[in-house]
Design a protein around this nucleic acid. Structure first.
Ligand SMILES: [Zn+2]
Ligand SMILES: [Zn+2]
Ligand SMILES: [Zn+2]
Ligand SMILES: [Zn+2]
Lengths: 136, 136
DNA sequence: ATTGACTCTATAGTTATTATAGAGTTTATA
DNA sequence: TATAAACTCTATAATAACTATAGAGTCAAT
């Protein structure tokens, strides 16, 4: 059994984050020592790594909670998992699109000024003041 | 002179957002009517549209505050504007990279399960439990 | 006994809004 | 004129996923 600091080192999650996950019911309430310290076993390490992996894929805590619940009912069909993943992937792709478009606009804007100009002549500020370019 | 609801309609910013921008000092405190209602003129409309344009480019409120300050000192060199834009563009591009990589991982993960499997056999959950693939 | 490292809970801060509650103002209608 | 509807005011809380405190308690070593 390890204490929370050790768990933090092993998993790379901060101590506060681990406590936060407990409060948010992503991990079960840990056993406590006599002095009221949280105690964790190997299973806790693995569950935390699972969560961390999910977070690295930008899955939200509610999404992860859903995955963990499914994990606990191994007989269920996994259509739900798939639906969630599809939706998540869709959102990521939409965000990529958005940012790509944004990036083009920013670069264009940036080209409208070279250094050592005066703010008064600055194309960036002038263009920012103009009505935003519509997407069409 | 128009009231805040009208300004909201004209600019497409919500009433609360406008009040928020005032509190955050992005726009000057509005004049007040006898009944203590905020009153705006055409200049306010334009400044709000400027802010909205900036926000649509994902510039943060502090960044916009900086732009507005520069806008008020037309004699200054605009190197600062450029530096900020460069940094902002860098961040957007970094985020695009991140999400693109993420998207690949998600799609790969998604392929590891077809519908009508059982959670127990689910490649998604199995793969999520495994240690994340390192980037190398 | 005391120090230092660790842990505990509770609370507040982060970003840019959005959503309330409860009170006051203005405009339109009966 | 009374009343209702629509609007506005301030202040406060919620959102997501942490991070950072404060103040107190625990534990191991000196
Ligand atoms: Zn998602
Ligand atoms: Zn410039
Ligand atoms: Zn930025
Ligand atoms: Zn599956």
């Amino acid at each position: 059994m390890i204490k929370i600091g050790e768990l933090s080192k092993v998993t790379g999650c901060s101590v506060q984050t681990i406590r936060h996950y407990e409060k948010e019911q992503l991990i079960a309430s840990a056993e406590r020592s006599e002095g009221n310290f949280r105690l964790y076993d190997e299973a806790a390490v693995e569950q935390l790594l699972f969560i961390k992996h999910c977070r690295s894929l930008d899955l939200s805590l509610p999404e992860i909670r859903q995955l963990l619940a499914l994990n606990r009912s191994p007989g269920a069909q996994c259509d739900d998992v798939n639906r969630m993943m599809d939706r998540h992937i869709e959102q990521v792709e939409a965000r990529i699109q958005e940012l790509t478009k944004l990036n083009e606009q920013l670069r264009k804007l940036r080209r409208s000024c070279s250094n050592r100009r005066t703010v008064k002549q600055c194309g960036i500020l002038r263009n920012l003041s103009a009505t935003p370019v519509s997407s069409g």
